[in-house]
Design a binder for these strands. Structure first.
Lengths: 260, 260
DNA sequence: AACGGCGTTGCTCATGGCGCAACGCTATGC
DNA sequence: GCATAGCGTTGCGCCATGAGCAACGCCGTT
């Protein structure tokens, strides 16, 4: 490879990186034309068209009409389905999450840090359910969710700051929007071992979360139980929290539930 | 580009295609080493390593340990989340599926054809639920699911044959395993406009499905309502089916719910 | 009709992708 | 302990493929 690439300090393949960047742009915008993609990447539109063609061939994108705009395609959903299938089979975490959902009657999620957001990577619903939409693949703020707090509480100061949005956006009247207040709560979470968010992200909605650790004790994911706050607040919170911790500990250690 | 590519009749970018092929292999196998990937693609392992590095940089894959094996990463889940978010926002199909789930109390799915399988691309749960795991991204056979039947019934003979597995695998005692019998049922589906699968894929599980069409009348997706067969068989099936058809029709036409 | 903007495709060239070879690391066997 | 095998990574230089230019055909607007 040329010196230009060596100096960039990367061993990535440029054309592949560009194609993957296209996927991200489509994810963010919903749909795009080739010319718009080319402008965004600073490349010629014929190049953008050819990269798009490669993505199209493998169904990672689809075209809305002949010679029309593009959006993400079913191949993405299929690949994501493979990820969750592996949680079922290979890593065996589904047995744990399903048991917890069954035991609590509420929805169980596994989430990971994704930049300065929480990303939901698995979900099992319990029986006490009014309505559920899939949270799989959704990103939510770290500062107002039990998962976000459980994921960030044990980070060192620098990492915790990086994982936090620059502005703690207020989503409900209960949202913590002050950094000092959030830091105090994270300190409490470190002491007691579990996190709670009660109507901080969405009114009427509450969650309890605990960290899932890898073999070295690093927090790599969060396990949460969530449901309508009217229901969760009727439970002894401590008792629920310890159920979540027990399941999170079962997922922790050697099991490759999720690694960063 | 060289004549060799022109003769291949493709405008794809080779390196991008290889990288995307790696994603598919990881989806199928769960996890792989670089050497294994290189052998599968017929390339040098240094090339495989570099392609993998590009995928790693964008979090589409992750590495299980330093210098260890690879598997699909959270970036895939995030992108899939973008797909389903667009169903909520841009295409507006979620209002329809949510209303149907609310009205029937059962689980509502949208599915598309993916080769010779059905791929679930969206899901909303109703209230009558014992336990639910996410079907998002999962692939199921066409011959023993209401969605599969609704997706294939209106295909022409050749397309219908291509969309069918070569062997109709028996999953329960009720599974249709004879092509002629399946063809007769597909004929009935074409006449009455909806499909049903009662314990054909999974014991105790039933679904009713109807086609979602594009602006030209082509079937592009299927809408299904599913739940425990003990519950669904207590409903007037005709009535349920017409609810599904009504919702499917609402999703049909100009709305770009899903296009092939 | 003309015009502008779109996505696609032919062509050529130079640069970035590719393969060779070497490296460092880990696990295994003696 | 040492030797071996296999792994993923990295430096290097070559050439094939990715990139950009220009033209094309299509569609929508005026």
């Amino acid at each position: 490879m040329s010196n230009a690439v060596s100096e960039a300090g990367t061993t990535s393949v440029q054309s592949v990186d560009r194609a993957l960047h296209i996927l991200e742009i489509l994810g963010a915008r919903g749909e795009c034309g080739v010319t718009e993609i080319a402008a965004e990447l600073g490349i010629h539109k014929s190049t953008a068209s050819r990269l798009m063609s490669a993505l199209l061939t493998r169904n990672l994108v689809e075209q809305l009409s002949d010679r029309g705009r593009f959006r993400l395609g079913r191949g993405i959903v299929r690949l994501a389905g493979s990820v969750t299938s592996n949680l079922e089979g290979v890593s065996g975490s589904r047995a744990v999450t399903r048991a917890l959902a069954s035991e609590t009657g509420e929805t169980v999620n596994i989430a990971v840090l994704d930049g300065d957001s929480v990303l939901y990577v698995d979900q099992v619903a319990g029986s006490n359910l009014r309505s559920l939409r899939s949270w799989l693949g959704q990103r939510v703020p770290v500062h107002c969710t039990a998962s976000g707090k459980a994921l960030t509480a044990w980070l060192d100061n620098d990492a915790r700051k990086a994982a936090r949005p620059t502005k703690l956006e207020r989503l409900t009247e209960f949202t913590i929007t002050n950094v000092d207040e959030l830091e105090r709560e994270l300190g409490q979470i470190r002491e007691r071992g579990w996190a709670v968010a009660n109507e901080e992200m969405e009114e009427g909605f509450m969650a309890v979360g605990a960290p899932i650790r890898d073999a070295y004790g690093e927090v790599v994911a969060a396990l949460t139980v969530s449901g309508p706050s009217g229901r969760l607040t009727k439970l002894p919170l401590d008792e629920l929290a310890h159920k979540v911790i027990a399941s999170a500990n079962e997922l922790s250690g050697d099991t490759d539930i999720w690694r960063e």
